[in-house]
Design a protein around this nucleic acid. Structure first.
Lengths: 340, 340
DNA sequence: CTGAAAGCGCTTACAG
DNA sequence: CTGAAAGCGCTTACAG
């Protein structure tokens, strides 16, 4: 397959390369018959403008860089899915990069930002630190954040979050108001994780608003992994004050809690109610089905792309970052005691 | 942040841009002190060579295009994970593209192949058709296939598969030899899916090798989705010959089978044994734990990258495609009757 | 509506 | 070991 470039097409069509280029870009300024001839010949020759050359020339690549903290689990799959779908719809490309360490995120960001390789990046960083913030600030390319803390709002193009607070508040209140539990435990997420902190706040707030005091022995640390949920529930069940219900800061830990309950011979929800957060795929297959909080993850990805494209198109600089917090909704299963 | 290019660095370092370029590439030919000076200045100026310009010039982008049939489920997550990890290790980028239709795969392939955007692509296409084959044949860029049928071996750079046949054979034989089941049903995958067909073959072969005839009413069609496993098992349980064990062509369908069994009041494995294929994350949480076939999906992604890089480096053309079939291994749970 | 030419930011023979 | 210059394949003022 001989390489075919714009010159070749121009020659065969008897026009200049400028005209060929225009036929492919700002079509309005090329006479219809000329354009048709160029299109016909391009098809025959199987010509596609070289996107690299075009990028170099236009200084834009129609490519989004996506930087994720990790690449595993359905949470990230859903984000990627949403991003890919929306990007494809608009004919943009997606360059992916995960990271297994902070350093890596930084490197990737620098590489992305400094080059013409991407026109903007979507960054998901539940624990953003100052160095990342610096890079975002210096960058000429827009950055759209997903699930980042408040500290970075100033520098980014947009920040999409999930209303973790509201979700945790609602599910806790459900346990209180609908089921009349009083001793409600909480297994938290990582201390430095923004989502986790918001969820904890929601739990506390719901307790206080409803006149319940939180005995600190009922709050145990977790890290979003299954094992810590397992350990967390065991600890609570051996506590001097044994809770009648437990809010797990995410579903994976709830899965661990199910295992712990089973091992210790506690029935869910009769002996102990358990609820989670995230509505992962697995949660519907637990017996009883887990009561949890659904988060619109794919939407997060889709919205991030749309916002990024808009910023890129408008090229307004220094506009205020757009901030949107997506609502969650309660998924009622049997693990809270409903349908008993 | 003022843009800093190679000229700027060259000027500040008092050398030509050629020397700066060399300092960043084939270092051996630049005198050590010169190189150090250039590195120091680059650091100060925050200079990173523009990868787009470099790509255009070198006609290679150090980027892999990944084309997947879909973007959801842990299967794809694992593939992506493996690819990303290996690519990152070698400082390559990954451009992602899924597709929701055949046309889309074709378009993406054409776009990828024709441009300088990627140096090669990893294509996962369980049902490759002739048009895709044509594109691969014409392409100058290497293509590494994952889980594709045999028909395409000739044109690609490499083809990595999972030994679906062996996996299905082994798990079926396990049911026969260890548990002495005689009436073993099978719920198949999509008719046009290469993996699915191989799994069916493995099932049949194991039956025949062990002197069991397959009553065709014991083989029902499925499509790899949960619902078809649900319907499939129901059908089998209402069959005139009711099986004592069933091989589901994948785990998702096995999950559906669990639901059907529960609904009809059949206990697994006492009333009916059920086994799956894939070893999805969920399978370990089923009660009893699903007996299934583990497939090394991340490895598939990793190996595909390594092979692609090697082909790209060596640039040998017309070498025979490299074909590797990765082994599977049996995961024993309680659903086959083990540990009863 | 169209063309000649400069330019995007690099790499790499070629010459020294 | 280093530089001047051509070239990668496009886009886009500028001029007509």
């Amino acid at each position: 397959m001989k390489k075919v470039d714009i010159k070749e097409v121009a020659r065969k069509a008897g026009v200049s390369i400028a005209t060929v280029s225009r036929a492919f870009n700002d079509s309005s300024r090329v006479k219809a018959p000329t354009k048709e001839k160029i299109q016909k010949i391009s098809k025959e020759l199987n010509y596609i403008p070289n996107p690299i050359a075009r990028s170099l020339s236009k200084k834009s690549s129609e490519t989004i860089g996506v930087v994720l903290p990790d690449l595993f689990g359905e949470f990230f799959m859903d984000i990627i899915h949403g991003i890919d779908e929306e990007a494809y719809k608009h004919n943009w490309f997606v360059i992916l990069s995960s990271s297994h360490s902070k350093r890596n995120i930084l490197e990737t960001l620098v590489e992305f930002m400094g080059s013409g390789r991407v026109d903007g990046v979507i960054l998901m960083a539940p624990q953003i630190d100052e160095r990342i913030n610096e890079i975002i600030k210096k960058s000429k390319r827009p950055v759209v954040l997903i699930n980042a803390g408040d500290s970075v709002d100033i520098n980014c193009g947009a920040n999409f979050k999930i209303n973790n607070f509201e979700g945790a508040y609602n599910i806790t209140e459900h346990l209180i108001k609908t089921h009349n539990y009083k001793k409600i435990g909480f297994v938290s997420g990582p201390k430095d994780n923004y989502d986790a902190l918001e969820r904890a706040k929601g739990y506390y707030k719901a307790m206080h608003k409803n006149g319940l005091t939180v005995d600190e022995s009922l709050v145990v640390p977790g890290n979003f992994l299954l094992e810590s949920g397992y350990a967390g529930l065991k600890k609570l069940l051996n506590n001097k004050i044994v809770p009648d219900a437990v809010v797990m800061a995410n579903d994976m830990m709830a899965v661990g809690a199910y295992q712990a309950a089973k091992e210790l011979g506690y029935k869910i929800p009769d002996d102990i109610a358990v609820v989670g957060f995230d509505d992962i795929y697995l949660s519907q297959f637990l017996a009883p089905r887990l009561t949890t909080v659904h988060v619109p993850i794919q939407d997060l990805g889709r919205k991030a792309v749309l916002q990024l494209l808009e910023i890129t198109m408008n090229k307004k600089k220094n506009h205020k970052p757009y901030i949107e917090t997506l609502p969650t909704n309660l998924i009622i299963g049997g693990s809270c005691g409903c349908g008993r």
